[in-house]
Design a protein around this nucleic acid. Structure first.
Lengths: 205, 205
DNA sequence: ACCGAAGTTAGAACGGATTCTACTAAGTGT
DNA sequence: ACACTTAGTAGAATCCGTTCTAACTTCGGT
């Protein structure tokens, strides 16, 4: 948990050779594939290593713990969400509408692989690691809500983070079978309308 | 072999003899004590059993998994919070003020035993178990916000649950060392003012 | 007082994450 | 090419949650 010196925990900084990048990719791919079947429990470190054609020790060199691995997988998913949003930005007229749009798009994405989603969300919450997940999601929401990109006020940041928290909670409830997609949509809309509607200062469409 | 029907997983229903109640109490106490030191990892099932003067198998008979044990410990903490609130209800004038009051009181309580808090929160979020935690906290907030006790509208429920989600998230951040008590207070106030201020019926200001 | 069911106990056994060891392969500077 | 640090491999070993076993108690009913 401590001595993580220069290995790539997050995205992929100092990987020297090409074969290392490929190893990393193979590992992440194997992990995601396994998780999207049986969930966390199917994604066993031995199995991931084997499936990635890598020794167990090597797997642990790349990802010091199972959590780190899961966090990395989540990071990739987030990348995909962000690029999807860049490709087709939310069109709703109001800030809260756009935020709901993004969150529900992410929800649909996760629902496609419920086992994976379950593993990811739980690991995220558990992680001791530096995970810019909340921050990243909040930043995404702030941006998407159409607020001044660079200079969101603290209040805006707090509100976006709050909406993110609510979303995560609802996802968890869904994974526990206590919410349907429609439930989540309705509830997120309610929360978003309170949290994000008409920001104090600037620009409304 | 299968039909293990009425063992006390949750609170404490059908415990026959007095000695069983005492065993249960000793177990919970040992668990809480251990967790309030080294956190989850210090609260090992073998250690709990030993410290409670009970065989490992017995521990597992009372609490079928570590999670169940943690959930039970949390339940006790919640009991204490609720009775504390009954004893000295929040005095603020507005619904959101009262909610903030309750949440910050709970926060202070948890801060007193950070390791315990950490273990509990994480386990709770992870738990597959039926845990009326979110519901219980949301119900508490609804009640405390001074809304019609029995007949909170769906919207009110959603908003209270949302505030609960935000609070849990902030607690997690605090346990990760990324928030101070003051941070949390400020952020919860911001979220609460949006989520709970001026419920349909009673408008202030 | 006795029987059978359910509760306890000490301890072994199992499974999966993580760590450790001893060894081999690859890359780098000279 | 040569020494050397670094990365990778196979597999044993360790740790902890959980399950299983076999014998011992406790308790309620008769």
């Amino acid at each position: 948990m401590e001595a993580v010196q220069d290995l790539p925990p997050g995205t992929a900084p100092g990987l020297r050779t090409k074969s290392q990048l490929q190893r990393r990719r193979r590992i992440l791919q194997a992990a995601a594939a396994l998780a999207s079947r049986g969930g966390v429990e199917a994604m066993q470190m031995r199995t991931v290593a084997e499936r990635a054609g890598v020794a167990l020790g090597t797997l642990y060199r790349y990802f010091p713990s199972k959590m780190d691995l899961v966090v990395a997988v989540v990071g990739e998913e987030l990348d995909m969400l962000e690029s999807s949003i860049a490709r087709r930005p939310p069109a709703a007229a109001t800030p809260d509408g756009r935020a709901v749009d993004v969150l529900m798009r992410a929800t649909r994405g996760l629902m496609r692989e419920p086992e994976l989603a379950d593993a990811l969300i739980r690991a995220l919450i558990l992680a001791d690691v530096e995970l810019p997940f909340g921050d990243r999601m909040a930043g995404l929401l702030v941006r998407v809500a159409g607020l001044s990109d660079g200079r969101a006020t603290e209040e805006q940041g707090v509100l976006a983070a709050s909406l993110g928290a609510v979303w995560v909670q609802e996802l968890l409830e869904m994974l526990r079978g206590r919410r349907t997609y429609e439930d989540i949509q309705r509830r997120i809309e309610i929360a978003a309308s309170r949290l994000l509607a008409e920001f104090p200062t600037s620009r409304v469409e």
